[in-house]
Nucleic acid binder design. Structure first.
Length: 232
DNA sequence: TCATTAAATTGTT
DNA sequence: AACAATTTAATGA
């Protein structure tokens, strides 16, 4: 929006694109040439509902909040997109407009490839199709989970589920890795105050499912985090 | 490399 | 919302 300008991708950016190394070399060439990168400041909006979908977008580094608030009602779902996550494929496949608002929760580096390149890859690269198919499947699971999360009343449970969703197998292959997110950011994501998030994290730490660390959390038991129930 | 300082983040009230 | 304590990052000798 402001002074943000897109630039060509640097080698370091390319390394942070998980599907790039998996597709055929002859296809990767076009992608690296067309990949654009932009830096977002906290609070900056990447795309809004209703805008035509021109890019397939992914996070190089940072944290984005994906929300679909209907014009009339309250925000429906929130999903965090962390480093390595790509989104917008559903919209691009149908050649529609964006159905979500994407906002940066912290300073983030975001990459994008043009819609034509996205379709070009779909028509040629089996490896790319495989990645997108996986991605769609994961996203579907996330939305089903999101419906459940919305119904949860207990803050500790909401935090637990949201953390589990962020620590997704697709984005973070191994348990025990550190998820870099501050308690403030988690508060924005889940819709709770920082204090309440802190309280919830302390409870989760006490239960042994996560370890609270400075500037992030470490998931010790992803399964138990997913199934966490307050008081039991 | 170490010490000092500022900034960010956390834990509590 | 405010405060103190802690951790990290930055700076410069």
């Amino acid at each position: 929006m402001r002074s943000s300008q897109s630039r060509a991708a640097l080698p370091a950016d390319l390394q942070a694109v998980p599907w790039l190394a998996r597709i055929e070399p002859e296809h990767a060439g076009r992608v690296t040439a067309e990949l654009r990168v932009i830096e977002l400041q906290p609070g900056e909006v990447l795309c809004r509902v209703g805008r035509p979908a021109i890019w397939w977008l992914g996070v190089i580094d940072g944290l984005l909040k994906m929300s679909n608030d209907s014009v009339e009602g309250l925000p429906i779902t929130f999903t965090g997109v962390t480093s390595g996550g790509w989104f917008g494929e559903g919209t691009l496949l149908k050649r529609e407009v964006y159905r979500y608002n994407i906002q940066a929760l912290r300073t983030s580096v975001v990459a994008g490839i043009p819609a034509e390149t996205f379709h070009w890859l779909l028509e040629r690269s089996i490896a790319f199709n495989r990645f997108v198919m996986n991605q769609l499947n994961e996203r579907l699971g996330q939305f089903i989970a999101a419906r459940e999360i919305d119904r949860l009343t207990h803050p500790d449970e909401r935090v637990a589920r949201n953390l589990a969703a962020l620590f997704h197998p697709l984005l973070y292959p191994g348990v025990g890795e550190r998820l870099r997110i501050t308690q403030q950011e988690l508060g924005y994501l889940v819709g709770l105050s920082r204090q309440r998030v802190n309280e919830a994290l302390t409870a989760l730490d006490g239960a042994g499912v996560i370890r609270v660390e400075y500037g992030g959390v470490r998931v010790l038991d992803l399964e138990r985090l997913r199934r966490y129930a307050a008081g039991g």
